[in-house]
Amino acid sequence: MTPDFSADHFTLFGLPAAFRVDGAALDQAWRQLQAQVHPDRYAHAGEAEKRLSMQWATRVNEAYQTLREPLRRADYLLQRRGIHALGERQTALPAEFLMQQMEWREGLQDAQQARDAGSLDALRRVLKREATQLTDLLAQQLDAEGAWDAAADTVRKLRFVQKLAEDVNLALAALEDD
């Protein structure tokens, strides 16, 4: 038997289903739920409770991760409306954005080849700012305008930017390793 996971993530944490979330309230609800279901609370209980506890704690962590990260939260909100922004079939992003992407990618490659930590760090900051702007845009599109298709595009852009930011971090880490 598996726990009833039908409640959606927002309901689970007692939060309104919106893109803008109260981070502190989310953190607090997560900790409060974990305090009830975490396996450490059931280490000396019977197998049935141990198993349930692990399933619940896993489920609570999954919900928390989804709501905490803006990209996953936006994707989740869209999925509730039947829009799979990150699914296999997606519309192409504007050429302008793709050009910008390629420019950043080239910048990353050049900095990597030149072992230029300064440029990498500068690129990291640029991407961070870009991600913040896209996140603000999502809040507008999802919470105020109900512009779902536009929001789906923004979600895809944000994923591009985050993937690139991860690669920049990996490149920085690789420089530190040598």
Partner: peptide, 13 residues
């Protein structure tokens, strides 16, 4: 065990 867990979750909320 399931009912106890559900109840605990509700109480946490």
């Amino acid at each position: 065990a399931q009912r106890r867990m559900d109840r605990n979750v509700r109480q946490a909320l």
